[in-house]
Simulated assay, not measured.
Amino acid sequence: MKPVGFIGLGNMGGRMTACLTRSGASVVGFDTRLELAAALGAEPAAMPREVAERADIVLMSLPDSTVVEAVMNGDAGVLAGCRAGQVVVDLSTADPASTRRLHGLLADRGVDYLDAGISGGAAAAEKGALTLMVGGTVSALDAVRPTLEAFSSKIFHVGESGSGHATKLLNNFLNAVSLAATAEVMVAAKKAGLDLATVLEVLNASSGVNFATLNRFPRIIEGDYLEGGLTNTLMMKDVTLYAGYVSQLGVASLNSAGPLASFGLARGLGYADRISNTVVDAIGDISGGVRVADQSTTEDEEQS
């Protein structure tokens, strides 16, 4: 049996690759950091083209459409090595218009292209419990479903090519709004002298409940920022991509200004490559140097 191909072995791709190898799958992997493949138990490939030549199923987890297109095109790219009957699955956060263009190029070669947006973050990837929203043909999804189930617990077929990445942009935008807004509220609660754990209990039993109040801030106020997830730079990229996408649809994006300002602030204040949860520290910085995290816990972790 041919190995599964995986291109992009970073924060999320590396965790998904580890799930595959733990499940017993043979994986051939490529990343610009050539040492990553072997560290994850995968056979290293010298270029994306080699991955396509050696695998029937090729998975990609890359930062954005610019990188996806670079990996697909050129003499060393996936298109140069692909053949009829293959399935390429793009697990990146990408521009749906670019996705549809690539779908057409691969279809001309008899290759199915699925765009599979992912949700759940690093923790879910680690456990193999991601949620996937997949665009493309049902038959192609059925063919690769056993492979995808190695790192995902919920797989939704959401429509034709581009639909998976479109759904991912919508989801990521709501994630950005709730995270940025909750960060602001927690800084305000701290300055008001409120007990943050109690505030979170109230929010989670009330109409203000959201993913950030349920899953992020109970840990953040204890000094655990859940490192390893989406950075402020990547969150800013996703919100910008969302705003451009809905503009193409003719939808007024009245609520994108908040997260763009919040994550832009975080980037400007030196948190660009830190997990997006640190947006609360950026807001705290310009609000009088507020920290919602338990400082004694944070200092203990830094010393250990």
Rank of each mutant, 00 (worst) to 15 (best):
P146S: 13
L214H: 11
T131I: 13
S178L: 02
A188T: 05
K168W: 03
A183G: 08
G223H: 05
V202H: 06
N172R: 03
G136I: 15
P218Y: 00
G136S: 14
V138N: 12
D142F: 03
A150L: 11
I155Q: 10
K191A: 01
L170C: 15
F217C: 04
H157W: 13
M186S: 05
G193D: 04
A140Y: 09
D195F: 07
S163K: 10
D195N: 13
E222C: 06
M133V: 09
V209R: 15
A205F: 04
T167Y: 05
F217V: 07
S206V: 08
V158W: 03
P146A: 14
S153C: 11
K190Y: 04
S153D: 14
A150S: 14
R216M: 06
A150I: 06
I221F: 01
N215Y: 04
T131C: 12
G136P: 02
A181Y: 03
V144Q: 05
A181S: 13
L214F: 02
G208F: 06
A188V: 08
A188W: 01
L194F: 13
L141F: 09
V185F: 06
T198G: 08
L196K: 02
S163M: 14
E201V: 08
T137S: 15
G223P: 00
A150V: 10
N210D: 02
E201D: 15
T131M: 12
S161H: 13
N172M: 05
E201M: 08
G164T: 07
N172V: 07
P218W: 00
G136K: 10
V134L: 09
K168C: 08
L226D: 01
M186V: 08
M133F: 14
L170N: 06
L179F: 05
G164W: 08
S152F: 11
T147L: 09
S206I: 06
T131W: 07
V138C: 11
Y225T: 03
V187E: 06
F156A: 11
N204F: 09
V185Q: 00
V185K: 01
K191G: 01
F156I: 10
L174R: 05
G159P: 15
S207P: 10
V158R: 04
G135Q: 14
V158T: 04
V209H: 07
F151C: 06
R219Y: 09
G162K: 03
M186W: 04
A176Y: 08
V209M: 13
L194M: 15
L170Q: 07
S161N: 14
N215I: 00
G136H: 11
I221V: 14
N210I: 02
T198I: 13
S153T: 10
L200E: 03
R145E: 15
A180Q: 04
G208V: 02
V202E: 12
G159R: 05
V187K: 05
N172I: 11
S163R: 12
A143C: 12
E149N: 10
K191R: 10
L170M: 12
F156D: 07
A140V: 11
D195A: 07
V144I: 10
A143I: 08
L174G: 09
E201W: 03
F156Q: 12
F211R: 12
N210L: 02
